[in-house]
Design a binder for these strands. Structure first.
Lengths: 338, 338
DNA sequence: CTGAAAGCGCTAACAG
DNA sequence: CTGTTAGCGCTTTCAG
């Protein structure tokens, strides 16, 4: 491997030292401005650095300092629509703090340890999205004292670990209440997200609470799986229709799924919101522009990303462990009937 | 920095060697399966590795091997809607090839070299999106023999460098021809993307060619800046309307801008496509679901990402330099009048 | 088949 | 204020 054509050897600190007529340690000192150095020495070193176009090698620094100045971001799927704001805010926050960002999609399976994609061997800490890492792995990280911040999930029992979550239950309750009280919907479908995902569980809880509050029974026939995914939700909607389960509204679990539900409904010549109201969760990029404009719950992904990144940095640098639940808010548009 | 609570020291190769009763070199050999080792030695080492939960430290490996097994992806903006498929395909391709992915947004300004976010000091190569890096920097990378693959842009004059681009001109020409020939549009606005961006330039060229082909003059009053951005495009549309420039169609430059154009038109009580046809470029996530469904040009971002990643890997590992133009295709929906 | 020894590029005491 | 001296954890000749 690594046999490209013309590899000009990159200059080392030694070359800079020679060029500037000083020792390596002096060069190191001025580069990290640690300790004093005479103004003219500094100038000579800086000139040599510029001349040779010298940049210190990250692995050499990392080896001696035992820090990578890199943080990881582990996700299950990079292609979700809320990733752009999330990634963008995390990246900019950690960059401002002087770190680099290593990204990996983690399949929850490849945990043969030997090829852990992100961990203490290559990062100073990481943000773990939802169920990218297993409980076992998270516990192990915590016990090792390796900084991890959980995103969209809570710590496993018994470990203390910073996390940032969103408010799911009460906003879902408000959303469903709107459907029931304002639009007089009675048979509301709920589409679950991926199995055991905390957001999905909490949204289901909000759904149940709203029904209860209004003395509506929870009909198991109205609960299906949308997987936070348009295709799965589209399919699920068709199945509900095929089974002749009567319903007058759908809470799709998230916006992605809502798009699938709307497609299926249209396909069956049902109109939204007249025949069936559809609501989502996330208020993603497209929510305001699709037809009909989607009633949903807005989630400030950029704020979440910034909080998570900030929490990680403060954990890494000061050992502070801080958690946060960011609030969300119902956004009423046309798809609910308004 | 780095003073978290309870840092249990991670095991080193030395600990594994002691635990397994062999030397460090033997452990290294079995871990990288280089050279022979007796089956029982292998077993003992593997057991020790598992027991101690040992993972080799990336910087130590990198220092000695002079490879990081990491590639960079440099973008100007992580929050674009085509990032998810692009990131996802790049990440999965390079992960399959055994690399990690370091991501950075590069502001084209912070090139004080000393803090180059991605470069030979921390990666084995990188994919550079559009104008994330300046010509000067790209040339320097090439001269150093540092592998760079350009995405959505061509190499600066004089350097040879793999790149993957999309077909802009002919698909734009086809798109505009459709507006002219099928829908009899005569005054078609073109909204430029970011200054000097190659995609924007090529799309403008396609626009001009189509007009010429149909003996229509290019009216400078119909060319404005949409910046590949909804807000800017919305604003630009309002300005055109305010200036009473007559037009019957808009090619927004990309889908993002098209959404902004549609918003502005609606705001002025103009109907799309009846009063004004609107077309975009990219066929992003929302294009099919907005109102009206957007006529656009579909761009296979996942294919592009995979090609770029593949090109980079083959450059890094074999020194092969291969370029590619991926083809795009007009997708006719409702917003053009169909 | 395995161990000893050297060194990757850098930083961090410690003297001067 | 600056140079000398040790390593950081790992891979890799080179002997055995």
């Amino acid at each position: 491997m690594g046999s490209s054509s013309n590899h000009l050897k990159r200059p080392t600190i030694h070359d800079v030292a020679r060029e500037a007529g000083v020792s390596k340690s002096t060069v190191s000192r001025v580069l990290n401005n640690r300790g004093y150095a005479s103004p003219e020495t500094i100038a000579r070193v800086e000139e040599a650095v510029a001349d040779l176009n010298y940049i210190p090698q990250a692995s050499a620094r990392g080896l001696v300092s035992q820090q990578t100045n890199t943080v990881g971001f582990a996700v299950n799927d990079l292609s979700s629509l809320f990733m752009p704001p999330l990634l963008s805010s995390i990246e900019s926050t950690i960059r401002t703090a002087g770190y680099k960002m290593l990204i990996a999609t983690v399949g929850h399976q490849a945990e043969s340890a030997s090829d852990l994609p992100l961990g203490p061997h290559n990062t100073d800490g990481l943000v773990a999205f939802a169920d990218a890492y297993s409980n076992r792995q998270i516990i192990q990280f915590c016990e090792q004292g390796y900084p991890v911040v959980l995103l969209h999930r809570s710590p496993p029992a018994g470990v203390e670990c910073p996390c940032v979550n969103i408010e799911n239950t009460s906003s879902t309750r408000a959303l469903i209440n709107h459907l029931i009280r304002v639009h007089h919907k009675r048979r509301i479908v709920f589409l679950r997200g991926p199995k055991d995902q905390q957001d999905s569980l909490e949204r289901e809880e909000g759904y149940r609470q709203a029904l209860e509050e209004n003395d509506l029974a929870v009909d198991p026939a109205l609960i299906a799986v949308g997987g936070f995914n348009a295709d799965i939700a589209e399919q699920a909607t068709h199945e509900l229709l095929d089974a002749s389960v009567p319903f007058d509204a759908v809470f799709a679990g998230d916006d992605e799924a809502a798009v699938g539900v709307i497609r299926a409904l249209r396909d069956r010549s049902l109109s939204v919101p007249e025949d069936v109201a559809v609501v989502g969760f996330d208020d993603d990029y497209r929510a305001a522009d699709i037809d009909p404009a989607l009633t949903t719950v807005s989630v400030p992904f950029d704020e979440i990303g910034e909080e998570a990144a900030q929490a990680l940095i403060s954990y890494i640098e000061h050992g502070h462990i801080t958690s946060k639940v960011v609030s969300t808010e119902v956004v009423v548009r046309r798809s609910c009937g308004c």
